[in-house]
Write a protein that binds this DNA or RNA. Structure first.
Length: 665
RNA sequence: GGCUACGUAGCUCAGUCGGUAAGAGCACAGCACUCAUAAUGCUGGGGUCGUUGGUUCAAGUCCAACCGUAGCUACCA
């Protein structure tokens, strides 16, 4: 029996679990369930990644302590993962005594082994918020192309990379003040010292060749020391023997794997050292996304090696998720949260689809909604669930749901069970899509078998009842073997199938142990077809919920230069006439007098204003907005109003005395 | 900019060492069936294998250039 510890990357405490997290956790969970099903000792460990400036700021904005903030998110995340049947043995937190212990202990070992040194670093500092600014929290003008409001690491406009200190007119994203350059002592992990070790380690089968190549590129490019400290204030663990230095979140995050496991060991009576000692015979596998390969395949093994622990058996890397060929987008509604998905659709449908798409490579995975619906319906419902569904009634009517005492076509059954070894290898490799393809090819065979031996024909002839029973017994047993194979991927569906089969929980070995002379439970529908309309519902709900977020984001919107504002020609205008636009639900057609000229403007304010009330009113209009051709005519400007919409729209108007045509500045 | 990976049917993907591999599933069309959740079975149409050159008796496969896509270019959480 193998002893296996498996981890999925720790979700960061800054938002909800979404389709991207689920890809990784479902992939990992499938592998874990497969190992457990085979009878290996396997633990699935995860935790909330809690430290860093982002959680600190998030908590501050929410008006709670970081501890409360991360615990709330942890509970939400647990609920979401449970709904998707992610079988974490422990879902802990990096803000734990265990983790603090490991962070300090490992740090001390790194230091004792002469792998830690300090250096002075000059960094931008926000004097108002009193904190050092990570690059992403500095914005300014690109030193190369002059594009404004660019982030502190590279320019979105021209692609230049630079240090935050090189930005012109830098501003803090937190306070919008101009940051100052300030120097501070930082602690560094001497990564270059481990170059030889890492070259060997990355080439020794721990990662797939394409990852090893990528890592080799990094190694060849020359390694720099890793800055592992951050200055206070910082939500995290204080570095021993310092007053104001904290471990950088990425130092203690992977240690969270150990800490969470330690916490689990204490409760479950497992020996931690068996898994983490330098000479451990157990396996440790990390499942991660390709965005964090460097942390897991360079920093982490080097740290473990230096601190005298074992290094991971493998790091398994998957790609990113896209929806309908594009990155997940809040405005399109394709940024789909787990909580919204599970309210509308059976989580097993997503598990199946991901399973059908996942492989051992790190290519991105696209969810095409149409493909998703087709795959689930034709494979799971049309092929797989259909097998027992088309037999159940025959068995119930004539045989009280009891199977025959022997298989009429053992060679066909053998064909199914003989696939076990191949399927096992494919699961082990992470080639889940090929597992699914093999299983569905067998499901096709089972349906062909039934079609070639039609029980509904035999049932018409008296005296051939035994044959009907024999055929259905064959089909149910083929189905049962497929259940074993599919169990790691769709545990909910298989649990219902196990109830029908009425013979306890399926084990891996049951794939070649036919069920004979056995009475089945009453057949209930195992799974329902899904519909594109349900996806529409999810997309709509996602769009609505992210619209709420963006309101709060907009309160801290980016600043612009005065010159940019001055480009906008705002004028006072008087409404000459207003009328309802035929065929449009929201629009009013306004004739405006702006100084000497008059213009036509369409405004989406019908839900809040009656046209007759508007005539004669003064409003503010954007006079130099590019005319927009609409279905009902051309709109030559834009009337300013406030409010979220619907009944709550409030037109802006000048105080008494303003006349049409006046410039607003 | 540099580097890496990828590009095969409408969609998702297989194609081993260059040699009867132009393939599967879904989608689509026709037929059959009616046990089953309009499920299933059989048959069929559909591809200049990103483009252009090259190596070879032979190229989806090897080489080069180009086009397109994605990613990486660590000290960002």
């Amino acid at each position: 029996m193998r002893r296996i510890l498996v981890t999925a990357a720790l979700p960061y405490s800054n938002g909800s679990i979404h389709l991207g997290h689920l890809l990784e956790h479902i992939q990992t969970d499938i592998w874990v369930r497969f190992q457990k099903l085979r009878g290996h000792e396997c633990y699935f460990i995860c935790a909330e990644d809690t430290h860093g400036t982002a959680t600190m700021i998030g908590a501050e904005e929410a008006g709670v302590t970081p501890e409360v903030w991360v615990e709330e998110l942890r509970q939400q995340h647990i609920t979401d993962f449970d709904a998707f049947a992610i079988s974490h043995d422990n879902y802990y937190t990096t803000h734990s005594p265990e983790n603090e212990h490991f962070a300090r202990e490992i740090y001390k070992k790194l230091k004792a082994n002469d792998a830690i040194y300090t250096a002075t670093v000059e960094q931008l500092y926000d004097s108002e918020k009193k904190l050092f600014l990570a690059d992403r929290y500095v914005r300014g003008t690109c030193p190369r192309c002059g594009a404004e409001d660019q982030p502190g690491d590279n320019c979105d406009n021209c692609g230049a990379t630079y240090a935050a200190t090189e930005l012109k007119n830098p501003r803090s994203a937190h306070s919008n003040t101009t940051p100052v350059l300030r120097s501070s002592t930082h602690y560094f992990f001497n990564l270059p010292k481990f170059e030889d070790f890492l070259r060997t380690w990355t080439e020794s089968g721990t990662v797939r060749p394409e990852i090893a190549n990528k890592l080799k590129e990094w190694l060849d490019g020359g390694m720099k020391a890793w800055d592992i400290s951050r200055d206070a204030p910082y939500f995290g663990f204080r570095i021993p023997d310092t007053d104001d230095k904290y471990f950088y979140v990425w130092l203690d995050a992977p240690m969270g794997y150990m800490a969470s496991f330690q916490n689990w060991c204490d409760r479950a009576g497992i020996n931690f050292d068996d898994f983490w000692n330098k000479d451990s015979l157990a396996e440790v596998h990390h499942f991660i996304g390709k965005d964090i390969v460097n942390f897991h395949a360079l920093f982490w093994p080097a740290v473990l090696h230096c601190a005298g622990y074992r290094t991971p058996t493998s790091v398994r890397v998957h790609g990113m998720i896209t929806v309908n060929g594009e990155k997940m987008s809040k405005s399109r509604g394709t940024f789909i949260n787990a909580s919204i998905f599970r309210e509308v659709l059976d989580p097993d449908t997503l598990r199946y689809y991901y399973g059908a798409r996942l492989n051992a490579s790190m290519g991105d995975i696209d969810i095409s909604f149409e493909d998703f619906v087709n795959r689930v319906n034709s494979d799971l419902i049309g092929k797989f669930v259909n097998i027992p569904s088309r037999c159940a009634n025959f068995l119930l009517r004539h045989f009280d749901s009891t199977l025959s005492t022997k298989l009429s076509q053992p060679e066909l059954y053998e064909e199914f069970s003989a696939k076990q070894q191949l399927i096992e290898e494919l699961y082990e490799e992470g080639e889940t899509s090929r597992v699914v393809r093999e299983i569905m090819a067998l499901a096709d065979r089972a349906n062909q078998y039934i079609a070639n031996n039609p029980p509904w024909e035999l049932a018409k002839t008296a005296g051939r009842e035994q044959e009907v029973q024999a055929i259905c017994t064959m089909a149910i047993n083929l189905f049962r073997t497929l259940c074993v194979y599919l169990k790691p991927i769709v545990p909910g569906l298989i649990a219902r199938s196990e109830q029908y089969l009425n013979a306890g929980e399926l084990k891996w070995g049951d794939a070649n142990q036919p069920l004979l002379g056995h009475q089945l439970a009453p057949f209930k529908r195992l799974m329902s077809r899904i519909d594109l309309k349900q996806i529409d519902k999810i997309v709509k709900a996602s769009r609505d919920s992210s619209a709420d977020d963006s309101d709060s984001e907009q309160s801290t919107s980016q600043t612009i230069e005065l010159a940019e504002f001055q480009k906008v020609d705002l004028r006072v205008a008087q409404i000459d006439s207003a009328s309802v636009v035929e065929g449009a639900d929201k629009l009013l057609k306004l004739e405006l007098k702006v100084g000497g000229e008059s213009r036509t403007v369409f405004a989406g304010i019908r839900s809040a204003y009656d046209p007759v009330d508007l005539v004669g009113r003064y409003v503010v209009v954007v006079a130099n907005l590019k005319p927009r051709k609409m279905r009902f005519g051309t709109s030559e400007g834009m009337v300013l109003a406030a409010g979220p919409g619907d009944k709550d729209i409030f037109l802006l108007s000048p105080d008494e005395g303003a006349v049409a045509g006046m410039e607003v500045s």
